[in-house]
Design a binder for these strands. Structure first.
Length: 582
RNA sequence: GCCGAUGUGGCUCAGUGGUAGAGCAUCUUCUUGGUAAGAAGAAGGUCAUGGGUCCGAUUCCCAUCAUCGGCUCCA
């Protein structure tokens, strides 16, 4: 058994302990399931009429510590279906689980430790009274029985457990660190974006600085795409329902689309939730020869999705956002080369942004074939094709059954940030469905009309969401090329005001984003202010610097880079910005 | 949408059934100081919004809006 399994067993045992404590304190509770998860464990309870609040967690935790001293191990009990049903006669949740186990023809087992026994398939720590000391109940949450929103909402208690005190402390410290890095806090502190009750939920307002970061990310992607022969297009924010009916999005998502009503016509309009259908209409606007392909369209337009209120979260999930969305219309024989190029571009961007990553091959859900449009044989072919492409490019990937889009399988890039959290960023999709539904064609060399293939491709996904991820990844310390203010000029007294102004203009003429702090604060205070504002480079200007036509350079990390002449300061900055180094 | 919590000056947070306070930020004045907070003063709030109970509500109750933690969803 490896370390990971051992930890899972410990946490699963902790879930049993939690249930035992809850049953002691609230005997009428109906207990359901309690698995180990990546970060710890949880147990779902139906507390009936009893109201539990976060303040009760301490009490439950104390009870767990009390009970565990008598837990010397877990005893497995094989029981008959009848015995199991009798034990849980008043618990419909457990009875449902028993039905399922019986249905699958698996043996029914209970595991007992101390006085507490629970229906369980096993996987426990052998000596809880010794091993299970370092746990903590984290939070209370609602969760649907069996994860289905049609079912009753249960009360879930989350906790975590480790073998060593040090590991628990490290985990809690990491959570603290993540909280400090919360992009919503950084966004406020650094004046990047805000929300207004009057504007509405999930509708971020970007300030000058936030808008600049957003634009800088887009410009970077645009630069790479232009070099690869992409053409930038622009399409309206609204379109008729017919467009989305034709694409299939209407059937699937119209409840999540904003309805727009004309005062003068009966047309049913929607704000666009994605760009693909509009791009098909640009393609369809004229005849295409096989020689014209590939046609690569890119569009940074705003998209609107009517997310359910409880799902909104800072910049992570909004109702107004954009995507670095591209659609490549090409022939079958061009798909491999186009995807190779897209993968290459993606790799470059991820390196620049400092993410490690792996890929997920997102395929159909074998249980629900009805969720997907198009010919099954084509799906089989494309899923296999996507897999071959990844293998050919030596890309590490894992399978994601059920993660495909309704019209195509996806090659999704999953990035890992500096706190070890994973984010789905890039995606590449080989789509046969949309070109057929929109009847897009080109004339091939044999004179016959054929459907092109539509490759959907995004690199950073959404610049707004990327801003969130980068802010947390770098704890607000964005690399120089992305920082909204790149250099703060700090004159020591106002005797240097004139010279500082001259330096400012010089830097600005090179396109560098500079802020001059001409306040009457002392140098220490100025350094503190701009360091907290995460300005990457601080340039101190005193009498000595002025005399030498130089600046004294210090980073926000506190590193002293010494005195630089104006010329060497500029080339130092320009070099760092051009290479996008961190 | 569902379960739970929260909403007090720009920010972080105290506090109260008898119409509110601190620190930081802001402004003014003094200070001209060499690598993470110089000093003093001033200004700033219909205590989220709308109802209700009460002689009286920021405080208690209800609704709405918004935010947070989850669940569900994610083209």
């Amino acid at each position: 058994m490896n370390d990971k399994e051992q930890l899972q067993h410990l946490r699963h045992s902790a879930a049993h302990l939690l249930a035992a404590a809850v049953m002691e304190l609230y005997p009428h509770t109906l207990r359901t399931i309690g698995p180990a998860i990546d970060e710890g464990f949880y147990y779902d309870f139906d507390f009936g009429d009893v109201k539990i609040s976060e303040s009760d967690l301490a009490k439950i935790e104390d009870k767990m510590h009390e009970l565990v001293s008598s837990w010397k191990g877990f005893a497995k009990q094989d029981v008959t279906e009848e015995e199991a049903r009798k034990a849980y006669a008043d618990n419909p949740y457990k009875l449902e689980l028993i039905d399922e186990i019986v249905g699958k023809g698996e043996p029914i087992t209970f595991y007992q430790s101390g006085d507490f026994s629970d229906l369980c398939r096993g996987g426990h720590d052998n000596n809880p009274s010794e091993d299970l000391k370092y746990f903590k109940l984290m939070k209370l949450a609602g969760a649907y029985w069996r994860g289905d929103e049609k079912n009753k909402m249960l009360t879930r208690i989350y906790g975590t457990a480790f073998f060593k005190k040090e590991e628990l402390d490290n985990y809690l410290t990491m959570l603290e660190e993540a909280k400090k890095r919360d992009h919503r806090k950084i966004g406020r502190d650094l004046d990047l974006f805000t929300f207004s009750d009057l504007v509405g939920s999930g509708l971020p307002l970007y300030t000058q600085r936030g808008a600049l970061i957003r634009r800088t990310l887009n410009n970077y992607i645009e630069e790479l795409q232009t070099a690869e022969g992409y053409q930038q297009v622009w399409t309206p924010q609204i379109a008729k329902a017919e467009l989305f009916k034709r694409s299939g999005h209407y059937d699937k998502y119209h409840e999540d689309m904003f309805h727009v009503k004309s005062n003068y016509s009966e047309e049913e309009m929607y704000l666009k939730p994605m760009n693909c259908p509009q791009h098909t209409q640009i393609y369809a606007s004229k005849m295409h020869s096989y020689r014209d392909l590939p046609i690569r369209m890119t569009d940074f337009a705003m998209l609107y999705r009517d997310e359910r209120p409880g799902e909104l979260n800072g910049l992570g999930r909004t109702r107004a956002f954009s995507q670095d969305d591209c659609h490549i219309f090409c022939r079958e024989d061009q798909v491999d080369a186009e995807i190779d190029k897209a993968l290459e571009m993606t790799k470059k961007v991820m390196q620049t942004l400092g993410f490690s990553y792996k890929y997920r091959l997102s395929t159909r859900d074998p249980q629900h074939p009805e969720k997907y449009l198009g010919d099954k044989a084509i799906w089989d072919k494309v899923e296999k094709w996507a897999e071959e492409i990844m293998k050919r490019n030596n890309i590490e990937y894992f399978d994601g059954p059920g993660e495909a889009a309704f019209y195509a399988p996806k090659m999704d890039l999953i990035a890992t940030d500096s706190l070890g959290r994973e984010w789905q960023l890039s995606t590449i999709q080989i789509d046969y469905v949309q070109p057929e539904r929109f009847d897009l064609v080109y004339t091939d060399s044999d004179g016959k009309e054929k459907h092109p293939i539509m490759i959907h491709r995004a690199i950073i996904g959404s610049p707004e969401r990327m801003m969130m991820i980068l802010l947390e990844h770098y704890a607000g310390n964005l690399p120089l090329w992305l920082a909204p203010v790149q250099v703060a000029l700090l004159p020591i007294t106002d005797k240097q005001a004139e010279y500082a102004q001259k330096v400012k203009e010089m830097l600005e003429s090179k396109g560098i984003r500079v802020e001059l702090d001409a306040s009457s604060e002392r140098l220490q205070a100025k350094i503190r202010t701009h360091t907290l504002q995460r300005v990457p480079i601080l340039a101190i200007i005193g009498e000595k610097e002025e005399n030498e036509q130089a600046v004294a350079v210090r980073t926000r990390e506190g590193e002293d880079l010494g005195k630089m002449s104006q010329e060497s300061f500029i080339s130092f900055l320009v070099d760092k910005i051009d290479t996008k180094s961190t």
